Computed example of a mutant assay.
Amino acid sequence: MSVTDDLDEAVTARLHERIAAAVLEAAGASGDPSHDPATTLQLVAASRAAAEETSRLLRASIDGARSAGHRWDTIGSLLGVSKQAAQQRFGTPAGKTAADGGVGADGRPRRVLTPLTAFDEMAVLEREGRRGWHVVDYGTLYHLVEASDQQWEHLRQPWNPTARRRLEKEGWTLIRTATFPWGYYKRPLGLPAEP
């Protein structure tokens, strides 16, 4: 499959079936839900939650594709819209913007590292981690880092809840809980920051 091909029909059908099954399971729907009015409302609530999550996954995957260097026309083609429509809808990151680093809750300085892509971000984070900077937030093409007096290491891992549990046992902290397609982790090294 090339970058601009849609998913094939069999993959799309399996994806639809799995999402529907997850919604039905979350709503506790067994059998015909039309016989139980409360179950129909549970289906509405479960469907809303599924829609919010798929919307979040779509935005995160687009952010990941942009960070990997893919162009808006390619993304628009996959979404079935124009380059301009894709950029207008998804061009502004959700949540925080990377405009200003500011200061952290404890008064430590913050700064924005940008532009960063999937190809260079880990090398930059390794260098900045030795200097005492650690990631506190991130988005498309940027990482927000905060100063500290010790060295840090950072890790980018394909998102996987099982790996998350293992990494947390090894002292890694997940930087943001809602993360896809990668999870970013950090941990202090217990060494003084380099100048």
Rank of each mutant, 00 (worst) to 15 (best):
H70R: 14
H70W: 14
H70L: 15
R71Y: 11
D73G: 08
I75A: 05
S77C: 12
L78M: 11
G80I: 05
K83P: 03
A86C: 08
Q88N: 14
Q88M: 13
Q88T: 13
R89H: 11
R89W: 09
P93V: 12
P93K: 03
P93M: 13
A94L: 14
A94G: 13
G95M: 12
G95V: 10
K96Y: 11
A99S: 13
A99L: 11
A99H: 12
A99V: 11
D100T: 14
G101H: 01
G101R: 02
G102S: 04
G107I: 09
G107P: 01
R108V: 08
R111S: 10
T114L: 05
T117K: 08
T117L: 07
T117S: 15
A118N: 12
F119H: 15
D120C: 01
M122E: 10
A123G: 15
V124W: 02
E126M: 02
E128D: 07
R131Y: 02
W133S: 00
V136K: 00
T140V: 12
L141K: 02
Y142L: 06
A147W: 10
Q150N: 04
Q151P: 04
Q151N: 04
W152E: 03
H154D: 06
R156F: 08
N160Q: 11
R166S: 14
E170R: 07
E170D: 15
G171Y: 07
W172N: 00
T173A: 14
T173W: 08
T173F: 09
I175C: 01
I175A: 00
A178S: 12
A178P: 06
